[in-house]
Design a protein around this nucleic acid. Structure first.
Lengths: 253, 253
DNA sequence: CGATCAATTGAGTGTGTTCAATGTCAGTGG
DNA sequence: CCACTGACATTGAACACACTCAATTGATCG
């Protein structure tokens, strides 16, 4: 478990990119501006937030943003790209516990712990914004709106897990896949065009399967079935949605 | 879904028990004192917390503390007794999403939502301490320690769900049951006596099954199997632990 | 172009589910 | 006190769905 730690600290190497960067964070060009923790704050409040943050990356696919057992220090807002978190279970098997996209906060899972409980791994070309948690906490005391926002996000995360993963236990492989695709639609990850659309998947099918609590084979079969039903068209790194309504109407029961 | 709401508001009727109670909450006799949100706060800080709280109950088994679609207003600390939260799924089936014991906070799941997402139902004779959330939030801004504690609890809840329910998907019925019994041990719900012990279950077997993502029949079979293996002795409302070590050593994989 | 890893497909197995029957227990009323 | 009731729990038999194992195809990269 600890064997790999420290052999190649990509966080450190990435930080070098902006070493000597003492100017205040510039959020005006950030792709995630509208989804960020800071959205809705006054200019003055945003300034407080900008002072404690800086950009990390870009991370290439497979690079780690933090590792299991690294000291918990920061949350990370995804500016662009995508991230998965995973843990090694009992015998070497990796389990994917979450995917994160633009505007999502990575690291909430480790609040209150000494160390991160997951590896956070970049999918695609990823830029993140680091929020040192103790600074963020202090800032929250002065900016009630920020405190509120963080709590809301924590509450949402609890609900989201309950509505998807926990509920998912009672759903067939096909339903789980559909609810995953619903999520992609709601997060606007897909390129939508009326009732059709498509996603360029940043993660592997195996990762999706793991996240949904399925074997890769079972996911593959579910994909094939939906393709036969004319709901989707399945490719290696892309899924075309031929009938978005049918996917969204899917009542999860 | 909304049909039952308001027909018999047990919250209101319970509140009558202490209507006119304008004195400050007295925590000195509370069974959950050592597990409460306020534990670790200075006397002065505790005073702030006591000012915004009051006791509700006792609730009898089956009575609701709040219902789905009630406006989200408060968190509730369990002083004594136990609570389950459940939701009605698609066709009338109730799904149990959590159990709460002394010192646990009920309602975290609904932070950031307009309405509660569950029914909270008393198991056994239950006393709770109501924490109006907007007051609690304001207090958090003045008491960083409290803010921190609440965030830690939220983080822990996220981790707990991930470590039990999400991981549980990969575990057999027997393993899920064992991990449930581990939880009971860790929360000191059981009456322990060296390597043996017993629990008087406040909830039905059906509730446990639902919580673990199993059918009652499957749980029953798992219980029978563990009894045959000499690990437990199974009764209707009680489980005897004949070998606590064997239960705790159980590595969840 | 071969090497490697991911994804798919097929065949057989297994664990939990489903359906149905029986058993247990607490509460109620004769 | 015992019979009746209804909810919960247990047990059995057949089934279904996802899993396992194995083979094949497909993509990517040196």
């Amino acid at each position: 478990m600890t064997s790999e730690i420290g052999e190649d600290n990509q966080v450190a190497s990435s930080q070098e990119e902006h070493s000597g960067d003492l100017t205040e964070q510039d959020c005006s060009e950030c792709e995630a501006r509208r989804h960020c923790l800071g959205d809705g704050l006054s200019e003055e409040q945003m300034q407080g937030l900008r002072k404690i943050t800086h950009t990390l990356g870009p991370f290439k696919p497979g690079e780690t943003i933090f590792r299991v057992e690294d000291k918990f220090k920061s949350l990370f807002v995804i500016q662009s790209g995508a991230v998965k978190i995973e843990t090694a279970s009992f015998e070497g098997t990796k389990l994917v516990d979450g995917f994160f996209f633009r505007g999502d906060l990575v690291g909430l899972e480790s609040i209150g712990a000494e160390q991160y409980g997951h590896d956070a791994i970049s999918l695609g070309r990823t830029l993140v914004c680091e929020l040192p948690f103790d600074h963020l906490e202090s800032l929250c005391s002065f900016v009630p709106r920020l405190q509120r926002k963080l709590m809301i996000i924590l509450g949402q995360k609890i609900r989201y897990t309950n509505d998807t993963i926990v509920r998912g236990r009672y759903m067939s492989a096909e339903k789980r896949l559909l609810s995953f695709m619903q999520m992609l639609c709601e997060k606007k990850i897909i390129k939508k065009n009326d009732n059709t659309g498509s996603v360029q998947l940043p993660m592997s099918k195996g990762d999706i399967a793991s996240y949904l609590g399925l074997r890769p084979e079972s996911l593959s079969r579910a994909l094939s079935k939906l393709q036969n039903d004319g709901i989707i068209r399945n490719h290696t790194k892309k899924i075309e949605f031929l009938d978005i309504k049918a996917i969204l109407q899917q009542v999860c029961g």
